[in-house]
């Protein structure tokens, strides 16, 4: 989050609540860059990310009374941005997987894992050096249902911790972990031909 002490943050929010134009401008300049970077990562498009950031600040300014100070102000702003971005993603990518149940690990009746032997496990370099395979990896990530894709984006790509992601998505830390695990498991299944080196030349 932006480098702001709690005291600075409190003063800034008090300024917003008093309707001071200067405070609004400071908030946009201070928190905007990080929101824009994160939005660009999620939406993969500069102009959509800018729209998203604009909507985020407008919503945040309208809902200032809803900020209770439990999370950091930057995290609260981020949670609004993530929700705005999710709405955009739903419109942009209607052809996502609807469910990931079929992509979960398999077990037999004796609770033993069913996993074909791995004779080769591709390195990240092998999987990402070619533009074509990199795009394929990205498209598999982006085709996951939004609730899973967003957790992967925030945890494994943007590297926020579980506590922050739970505040951003307004779900428990346990729910973040469950979604993260399911998302990773599903993605592992989708990437399996690449991971096994089967589709690379």
């Amino acid at each position: 989050m932006a480098q702001t002490s709690r005291t600075d943050e409190t003063e800034l929010i008090a300024g917003l609540r008093r309707g001071e134009t200067r405070a609004f401008e400071m908030v946009v300049r201070q928190y905007g860059p990080r929101l824009l970077a994160s939005g660009r990562r999620i939406l993969r498009d500069q102009s959509l990310a800018e729209d998203c950031v604009q909507e985020t600040f407008i919503k945040a300014f309208e809902r200032l009374d809803g900020f209770e100070g439990r999370a950091k102000f930057g995290t609260w702003l981020h949670s609004i941005m993530v929700n705005q971005a999710l709405m955009k993603l739903r419109k942009l990518r209607p052809d996502k997987h609807e469910t990931i149940d079929d992509l979960m690990p398999q077990f037999d009746a004796d609770s033993c894992r069913i996993e074909a032997p791995w004779s080769h496990l591709a390195t990240p370099h092998e999987m990402l050096e070619e533009e074509q395979t990199r795009r394929l990896v990205q498209s598999h990530i982006e085709q996951l249902p939004e609730t899973y894709c967003i957790v992967l984006q925030l945890r494994d790509i943007q590297e926020f911790n579980t506590e922050t992601v739970s505040e951003m998505l307004n779900i428990s830390q346990g729910a973040v972990k469950v979604r993260l695990h399911r998302a990773r498991s599903a993605l592992k299944t989708l990437l399996e031909p690449l991971l096994r080196g089967e589709t690379m030349s």
Partner: peptide, 29 residues
């Protein structure tokens, strides 16, 4: 072997769009 592939998936995901967190611009336009 499942766990090795699971961990590799995490590594690949983290690098799929370049390394680490998104570069933060100094300012918004």
């Amino acid at each position: 072997e499942y766990m090795a592939a699971y961990k590799r998936t995490i590594e690949v995901t983290g690098r799929a769009y370049g390394n680490g967190a998104a570069p933060v611009p100094d300012e918004v336009p």
